[in-house]
């Protein structure tokens, strides 16, 4: 077995956040949230009507982008299996900070209907910092829009700081991640 450690244990050196223009930056960030087009579970089916013409999230300045490097928001849409969690952590760490996580549905909160599944995790906040929870199974697009409105408020007031907590408590998150991911086995990457 390959025993090389592929987890990123060192923290990112430079954080481009804060400074004199932080409030202006936050104001602008809250109005142009770009979302990674990545669905982990059944909840991503609700994202299509949210982002297309009927509910039209683009009027809030939101749109889907294809790569994590351009994105601000990662949506965990529904249940997460261990196999998907590996990819989600990788996607999350490749995003540029500041970055925000929105969890959809009951499954990331306490396992939902998959609470006794051998393969779906029960609590997402052990492995990734979550800024906004949206409950429901699945939440309607209206609920998702309300959740994003809440996320905008949090960003505006500078309280959406999950990404900072993630970097500060990286050891704790890594310990939890290592408990269920036995073998990382993925190509190297950076923050």
């Amino acid at each position: 077995m390959d025993k090389k450690n592929y987890f990123l244990d060192e923290k990112p050196e430079k954080l481009t956040y804060g400074g004199v223009f932080r409030k202006i930056d936050d104001w602008a960030r809250a109005r142009s949230l770009w979302v990674v087009a990545y669905g982990t579970g059944c909840g991503s089916i609700e994202l299509r009507p949210t982002f297309t013409s009927r509910f039209d999230a683009e009027r809030l300045g939101m749109r889907m982008v294809g790569t994590p490097r351009q994105a601000d928001v990662l949506i965990i849409s529904g249940y997460l299996t261990v196999k998907t969690l590996k990819r989600v952590i990788r996607v999350y760490e490749q995003m540029q900070s500041p970055k925000y996580v929105v969890a959809l549905g009951a499954c990331p909160i306490n396992g939902g209907m998959y609470y006794d599944s051998y393969n779906a995790i029960n609590q997402l906040d052990l492995y990734l910092p979550v800024d906004v929870w949206i409950t429901g199974c699945m939440p309607r697009p209206e609920a998702i829009l309300a959740g994003f409105k809440r996320l905008q408020e949090l960003i505006d007031s500078g309280r959406a700081d999950g990404w900072k907590k993630y970097i500060e408590n990286l050891d704790w998150y890594r310990e939890n991640q290592r408990k269920i991911i036995k073998n990382w086995k993925m190509p190297n990457y950076n923050w």
Partner: peptide, 21 residues
């Protein structure tokens, strides 16, 4: 293997992923 009937999926889930309910 998890689909065998003597595999206790609830016990496995609580040990590995923690219990919430």
């Amino acid at each position: 293997p998890p689909m065998r009937r003597d595999f206790d999926t609830l016990k496995y889930s609580m040990e590995k992923f923690g219990e919430r309910a």
